[in-house]
Computed example of a mutant assay.
Amino acid sequence: MRKRATAKQVAEAAGVSKWTVIRAFTPGASIAEESKRRVLESAAALNYTPNLLARSLATNSTRQVAVFVDDFANPQKLPFLETLTEQLQAADLVAVLININNHFNHVHALLHADQRQVDAVILFGTAFRDETLSDPQLGHGTPPMFVLARDSQIEGVPAVVCDAELALREIVDHLHARGYRRPGFMTGAPALSTALRRRQHFTEFWEQKGVHRIELLSAEKYSAEAGARGVRDYLAGTSAEDRIDVLMCENDILALGAMDEMRGKFGLNVPKDMAVVGFDNYELGGSSAFGLTTYEQPRQEMVEVIIRMISGELEPETVTLPGKLVVRSST
């Protein structure tokens, strides 16, 4: 294998000191233009690139951000991850993706992230327990944490979220105006401390309109299969005259699975027999096969805010941003 060129070799080729080479590759460092030109030309000739890990020892920053994810079955994660990694890289940061699962829990993930000396941790779709922070395996120097796209009730851990209260008010106002009066709500995976508050607001706004019975359906996890199973269990155990007339699903993936099951196995017409609403504005939901009414999160703005917090441009604090109701044929 070819050995990497070193800063010392570049310095010798350019006729400068090793420290001049280091300054040439350090943004904002003081260096004469002529010296910088000779260094960059010699570096290009030797195919030299600076060692970022070595630089991190001097700067006390690895420019790495750990991203914890635990629900990969939810395809809506991909557009968020695309936006997140794109904006991290634009800010000269790099994502370290960590899969939270039965074999690698949050404690292991935090230890792993700390050993890599990441600059921050983003909890993205993870059921994080606040008591995890008191685990004896963890030291006092764990990297700062942020929650993306979920509420955080963990002291000292800010969240950047879509405004759930505004979103559910707009959704319920829309459904009520369309004449629906027997609503149901399908929850996804239990979310512990980072629980979504969509169900709570959905219930509150219906109660304000005089509707006090909200049928609860559980899907246990975020997947189309789980959404189909949740609505199957409900429809099989409920007579046609007693059924809800509109189902709000905690996200689009549940809604798509539920719609498939309603139409395919039970022969229901959406929205005539039962209307369906999702959340996230997943691309497939906008197809003519589904026409799913949903709520679009401000993905670009949410990611931008969390990166500015990590970079120190904004004070770390919980931020809620407005989204947009997208009305289609399912309601």
Rank of each mutant, 00 (worst) to 15 (best):
2 R>C: 02
4 R>T: 01
6 T>S: 09
6 T>P: 00
7 A>I: 12
7 A>W: 11
8 K>P: 01
9 Q>D: 06
9 Q>K: 15
11 A>N: 07
11 A>C: 09
11 A>E: 05
14 A>P: 00
14 A>H: 02
17 S>Y: 08
22 I>W: 15
24 A>L: 11
27 P>C: 15
30 S>Q: 15
30 S>I: 15
31 I>M: 14
35 S>C: 12
35 S>H: 13
37 R>I: 08
37 R>S: 09
42 S>D: 03
43 A>F: 01
44 A>W: 05
45 A>K: 15
48 Y>D: 01
52 L>K: 13
53 L>Y: 10
54 A>F: 03
55 R>A: 10
56 S>K: 08
59 T>E: 13
60 N>Y: 15
66 A>M: 08
66 A>T: 06
69 V>R: 06
73 A>I: 01
73 A>K: 07
74 N>K: 02
74 N>C: 03
74 N>I: 00
74 N>E: 00
75 P>M: 04
76 Q>T: 14
78 L>D: 04
86 E>I: 12
86 E>L: 15
88 L>N: 02
88 L>T: 00
98 I>H: 00
99 N>A: 09
102 N>F: 08
103 H>I: 08
103 H>V: 07
105 N>E: 12
106 H>C: 12
115 Q>P: 09
118 V>F: 08
122 I>N: 03
125 G>Y: 07
127 A>R: 15
128 F>N: 03
129 R>Q: 15
137 Q>K: 14
137 Q>P: 05
142 T>D: 05
145 M>G: 05
145 M>A: 10
152 S>C: 11
153 Q>L: 13
157 V>P: 00
159 A>N: 05
160 V>C: 12
163 D>C: 04
164 A>N: 11
166 L>H: 03
170 E>K: 14
170 E>S: 08
174 H>R: 14
175 L>D: 04
177 A>G: 07
177 A>R: 15
181 R>D: 05
184 G>V: 01
184 G>S: 05
187 T>W: 06
192 L>Y: 04
194 T>D: 07
196 L>D: 06
196 L>F: 01
198 R>Y: 02
200 Q>Y: 14
200 Q>S: 12
204 E>R: 06
205 F>Q: 02
210 G>N: 06
210 G>W: 02
211 V>N: 03
211 V>D: 01
212 H>S: 10
213 R>L: 11
214 I>H: 10
215 E>I: 13
218 S>P: 01
223 S>Y: 06
225 E>G: 07
226 A>K: 09
229 R>Q: 13
234 Y>N: 04
235 L>P: 00
242 D>P: 00
242 D>F: 10
246 V>W: 10
249 C>R: 06
250 E>T: 10
251 N>F: 00
252 D>Q: 09
253 I>M: 11
254 L>K: 04
256 L>Y: 03
260 D>T: 07
260 D>V: 08
262 M>Y: 11
262 M>E: 04
266 F>A: 00
266 F>C: 00
266 F>R: 00
269 N>K: 14
274 M>H: 08
276 V>Y: 00
287 S>T: 12
289 A>N: 05
291 G>D: 02
291 G>C: 07
291 G>Q: 05
292 L>W: 00
293 T>L: 15
299 R>Y: 03
303 V>G: 03
304 E>Q: 15
312 G>M: 14
317 E>I: 11
325 L>M: 12
326 V>R: 09
328 R>L: 03
329 S>W: 10
